[in-house]
Design a protein around this nucleic acid. Structure first.
Lengths: 236, 236
DNA sequence: TCCGCAAAAATTGTATGCAATCCTGAATCG
DNA sequence: CGATTCAGGATTGCATACAATTTTTGCGGA
């Protein structure tokens, strides 16, 4: 009756239950089923997944390292609640890294990978037209996956790991500071980027990615710098 | 009689012993007292620091996230042994990220920070002239710290964290593939970079950093791509 | 009613015990 | 003589027990 069994009906979940819990929690955070500030009690999570606190602690430590969870000594783990300044740092980091990734991806992309991109993009547009919170979540997820797919095509595992962290944190930032509901907006941007990748036009791909990031960030409202402590308290 | 007490004679080592062990191990890895491939047994480390395996495991997990340690299920943790390909990825990542950091640092650096840089650089040159393995280690450390200092001046905590990981991994890579002994060479490079930062010349600082990274990488011998499995076995 | 304050409850930090897995090496068989 | 197998020991994975700390609760007084 535990969550893992339900989500992975028959797959070999036998190994590394800690990684599985980490992935489940991360998914829940990035597609916003767990609001920023939510407390993640070790005992509660452990009961939910039917494991001891030991393995939950390992999962929470991993998420803390990725910046998705903040732990306070003797107080526990909470879904991260990035400040406007941290939000800016996330996007500054993406502006620095992601154009370079687009460049590498444009140079290395294969036709098979292009096909995978097309499929992803098709899923995205289908979800865009559907209604309901579940489709919204899947859309957010697919939008992030586009960027991760590009990073994996770039062929650098370290940069891929960095991008995984940045994309996940972006989702948190958008949840907190996004103005429009459909903040995963840039679907048309993604299409243009893919075309540039197909044509192996590194300069264009890089420029499009940069403006795409600007586009996403421009939808945020990061003004509340001093009001945050209050909001912080309220979200708890 | 444990290591921690000896290293931190009186400071408040009361909190987060796991973080302290992690830092000690990381220092040992980056200044090459622990060779790549060395096994880090939980019990052994625990005895050394006089803590239980629980807190050692947390420290090792943190180092595994940073890529300094590789853990194999049911086998334990080992100091990472990066392949030539991983080595290239480390430097590719630095080439992508660090020029941007130099740019930001050049724009934001204050006179107080310039003074700190000068001091650091002075330490570096002093160590360069000294003999003995201990001075060599301190020199390696100081050389890495130069880059981290620049990243902290840039004012982006996320990029600083990324740079910490990359600098640490670079040290491992140099230990494995460095040709000349004094591979932390670029002391003169550091001086030139600092001058560019002082003059707030972002373009120059960025270009100098890029060539500095190339300079470091050109001292590596990454040819042994297929011979590595053997070498892997031997270093164990 | 509102504010301290102390005891209880809950939660995290750490140590330890047991089961599962892996490595070693010697005995056995071809 | 070489390959194989199978105890024995060592090491990790996980659960649990206990200690330390924080949070909540209940009470008395202003």
């Amino acid at each position: 009756m535990n969550i893992a069994d339900h989500a992975m009906p028959e797959l070999g979940a036998t190994e590394d239950r800690s990684a599985m819990i980490r992935d489940h929690l991360r998914d829940a955070i990035v597609d916003r089923r767990l609001a920023p500030g939510t407390k993640l009690s070790e005992a509660e999570v452990g009961t939910l997944f039917d494991v001891s606190r030991t393995v939950v602690r390992a999962a929470l430590q991993a998420l803390a390292f990725e910046g998705l969870v903040k732990t306070e000594r003797n107080r526990g783990a909470f879904v991260a609640n990035p400040s406007p300044d941290e939000a800016r740092q996330v996007f500054d980091s993406r502006r620095l890294i992601e154009p370079g990734i687009a460049r590498a991806a444009a140079e290395r992309i294969t036709s098979a990978q292009i096909a995978a991109f097309r499929e992803r993009l098709h899923d995205e547009s289908r979800l865009l037209s559907e209604r309901g919170p579940s489709a919204r979540r899947a859309e957010i997820h697919a939008s992030g996956d586009f960027h991760l797919l590009m990073a994996s095509v770039a062929g650098n595992a370290i940069l891929l790991k960095f991008m995984e962290e940045l994309v996940a944190r972006s989702s948190l930032v958008i949840a907190l500071y996004g103005r429009s509901g459909a903040s995963s907006c840039g679907h048309t941007d993604h299409g243009a980027i893919l075309r540039a990748l197909e044509q192996h036009d590194a300069d264009l791909a890089s420029a499009l990615v940069l403006s795409h990031i600007d586009h996403i960030e421009s939808d945020l409202d990061l003004r509340v710098s001093e009001g945050m402590p209050l909001r912080d308290a309220l979200t708890l």
